[in-house]
Computed example of a mutant assay.
Amino acid sequence: MSERIVVVGAAVLDDGRLLAARRSAPAELAGRWELPGGKVEPGESSERALVRELREELGVRAEVVGRVPGEFALRAPYVLHVWTARLAAGSAAPRPLQDHDALRWLAPDGLWDVDWLDEDVPAVVEVARVAWGSGAPVV
């Protein structure tokens, strides 16, 4: 049995909107949307990993706000933990730098206008519940 590998996903919220990132790699994921983030490195906390991944992938300084309840299954042995985050004061605007070719801010009524990765859908549903309550549209 292999050990779980934790991947952190960022629910970056700003002005009532959620940031989605379109994958450009690997080829089997290209064109689909996800919450930005990546693997937690050995000895690294989830919060530090999230801040590092957002800097590397989007060129932003971010602040972790809180953990979204749940652990979401990805391809074994990976599991996704999602954290809400906000852009730090004075941070540059997000831009796709690594593994993404587009970004989009989604309001609650447009949350499902993008083709989310299947594995991210349960996490996005939970983010919507946490961020916008029961009034948020779901698939």
Results as ranks from 00 to 15, higher is better:
E119S: 14
V65D: 14
A128L: 07
A49V: 04
E63P: 04
A93L: 11
L19I: 06
R75T: 12
Y78K: 14
L117I: 08
R67L: 12
E28H: 14
H100A: 01
L13I: 15
W105L: 06
I5R: 15
G59M: 04
D99E: 10
A25I: 03
V12Q: 05
P94I: 02
V12R: 05
G43A: 09
E34M: 09
D109L: 13
G70Y: 10
E71K: 09
V79P: 03
G135D: 12
E126M: 14
R22M: 01
D101Y: 01
V114K: 07
R104P: 06
D15V: 11
A20V: 04
L13K: 02
A76S: 15
D101C: 04
G133L: 12
A123N: 08
V127M: 09
D113W: 06
A10Q: 10
W105K: 02
R129I: 08
A25N: 03
A88N: 07
V51M: 09
V127A: 10
R61L: 11
A73E: 15
R75V: 11
R104D: 00
D101G: 01
A73F: 08
G90T: 01
E119L: 08
V51H: 02
V6R: 11
A21K: 02
E44Q: 15
E3S: 14
G37A: 03
P42M: 09
D115N: 12
A20L: 00
A76Y: 13
R52G: 02
R55I: 03
E53F: 01
P26H: 00
R67Q: 10
A88S: 12
W116A: 07
P122K: 11
R55T: 06
A76L: 11
K39P: 13
S2P: 15
L19M: 05
A76T: 13
P26T: 03
W116C: 09
P96C: 00
E71V: 15
L97H: 05
A25M: 02
G43D: 08
A123M: 09
G110V: 08
E126H: 09
S45P: 07
E28V: 07
L29I: 04
S24R: 04
V125S: 12
D15F: 11
A88H: 06
A85M: 07
R4H: 05
A89H: 13
K39E: 14
R4L: 14
E56G: 01
G133E: 11
D113R: 13
L74K: 08
E28K: 01
A73N: 05
L87P: 00
V130Q: 15
V82Q: 04
